[in-house]
Amino acid sequence: MSAATRATIGLILIAAILASLPLWTGAANLRLVGEILSYMALAVLWNLLAGYAGLVSVGQQAFLGLGGYTLFICTIWLGMPPLAAVPLAAVAACLAGVIFAPLLFRLEGAYFAVGTWVAAETVALIFAAIPSLGAGAGMSLPAAAVKGIASSRSMREWLIYWIMLGLALAILGGTFALIRSKAGLALMALRDNPTAAGSVGVDIWWTRFWTYIGVAAATGAVGSVIFLQKLRISPDAGFSLNDWTAIVIFIVVIGGIGRIEGAIVGTLLYFLLREMLIDYGTIYLIVLGLVGILVMIFSRGGVWGLVERHLGWSLLPTRRLRD
């Protein structure tokens, strides 16, 4: 049995357990697992951008909030069923990515990161200036639309959970497949040595472009499901740097940048840390920042990098191409 087959069987098993979760746990746990899945998806996506394509973005909240707002616009203005709005959220975020990428790609190295932040602020300010979307205060999903998702409250929670689960697995599986494909090889060549990758025919600009807008689309979809669950959106919540980018970066850094397993392990570690430290308020965020810095200085591969080095484990065989 090859490593890939083993990984696939393992994933199917985990997916089955997660899918059956609503049948044997309460609403609070379901919501927590849904949140964990959403962060895992965001972490896998950010890792693909920064760890593989070399695009360090601190503006992913632009696409997440845009996805969320698309959901509300589609249901309130166009009267669409909320679930049908999820793919449209991906399209909207993707379009924003298509607009921003050619501009932001002109910024050199680290300035790209700050540029993505300006892009996110710009999108947030535009939404905050639209009165019919509640301007700075935001808006709620109308009761009729909420009822349209599913007949009962628990059924609605289940449905949203399953959509998030499906989306997270699709993102994980898609990223996994991408990294093991020829395009993934190009991405890794690009990350390890852009000049050499360019000289062997990897089109740096387009490879980065497709990755950027693909990640934007997926982030938008995740955003729409997150706010489908929350039922309320505002510019501050939708375009929050802390919630949708800072925490995601922390997750990838402690888990191990440039490794898919890192994003998964990092997500679990983050939620563990959060449960332990949440009562300490601001101290909790200071600790996150410190841990992130220490990891970057002393163990750049994160926790999973340590595991690989000392135990020789590799859950998902994506690094065979590099080593």
Binding site: A50, G54, V56, V58, G109, A110, A113, A246, I249, V253, I257, T282, I283, L285, I286, L288, G289, L290, G292, I293, M296, I297, R300
Partner: peptide, 18 residues
């Protein structure tokens, strides 16, 4: 460019919350 970028990002979080 990634490590110094992320380390200063961590500094930002620490300063704000401190």
């Amino acid at each position: 460019v990634l490590p110094p970028l992320l380390v200063t990002f961590g500094c930002a979080v620490i300063i704000q919350n401190a």
